[in-house]
Amino acid sequence: MTQVKSLLGTLVGWLVSIIEIPFNLIERVIGGRRMPWVFMLPNLVIFGVFTFLPIGLLVFYAFTGGTEIVLTDRPFIGLDNFTRLFSCENFLSPYSCRESMFWIAVQNTVWYVLLTVSGMLAVSLITALVLDKITKGRGFFRAVFFYPVLLSPVVVGLVWRWFLDTNGLLNSLLVDIGMERIIFMLDVFWSRFWVIGVSIWFQMGFYTLIILAGLQAIPRDIYEAAAIDGTPRWRVFTNITLPMLMPNLVVVLVLLMIRSVQVFDEAYVLTNGGGPGTANTFLVQYIYETAFASDIRLYGLASAASVAMGVVLLILTLIQLGLAKKAE
């Protein structure tokens, strides 16, 4: 740790000696009271250029057509992109839609979100409760479950693709117990099953950590008081642990939903591009492919889909804020 500190110190010191002079000059001109704006400026510029400016541009894109990236070369087409996305004879059957890929992606994403969120919540909650309960080795197991969180999605996708390979370890175990080999990634059911399973494997350590922090914040004397009252265990869980954990679980739930809606990287690598067929093509992949990975780059259509996804995420965020307020 001290080494990290001193290394950081040297790096920062070196950089800083270059920028100290302009900063001091600016201070002499504008006075110390206005310096906070100078300190915030670089950050605000980056946010402005790469976050707020794009939000504005997103709307322009969504209302223009053509395949040009430069805004001035794009014809205004009003709501056409949205009409194209949303013209469906039956919203539950993607192939009846004009932009059927979008609706397949929506349908896949909805199922993915529902199953991943519930699975993740269950696994993380159980793991957190177990980690809270044990007295020895908590740090070790917490670290073990957390480790995958730090891996890159590409690595996770490849590691699991190899594990699930036709000639992989899992198939060899299946053969060992007398079953047939399964080509998991060419089977619609199994590929979806593993996409969800790998997502849970990948991220559960993060949610476990948050839930565990919530559990450990519950004062122990409440449990002791309950024990003295002779409260049955399941009542302790439903009447003390769960209510006191609720604010925490709400945060986890909404965070999980917001992140799950944006599933892309690890699923894309694991399924080698969303296969078999379109079984694992999700919303972000649709946007990515519509805008960047097809021969005709439909930026407008992709933007319209982004706006739709952004609205969903915004609603989820507002729900979170509402629930957080209610919890207070």
């Binding site: 790469f50 400016l53 917001i258 944006q262 892309f264 946007i287 930026y299 992709a302 995420l313």
Partner: peptide, 13 residues
């Protein structure tokens, strides 16, 4: 505002 939402205009920028 996750990157995946503004990815198209961010690319333009």
């Amino acid at each position: 505002i996750p990157l995946s939402v503004v990815i198209v205009p961010a690319f333009l920028v």
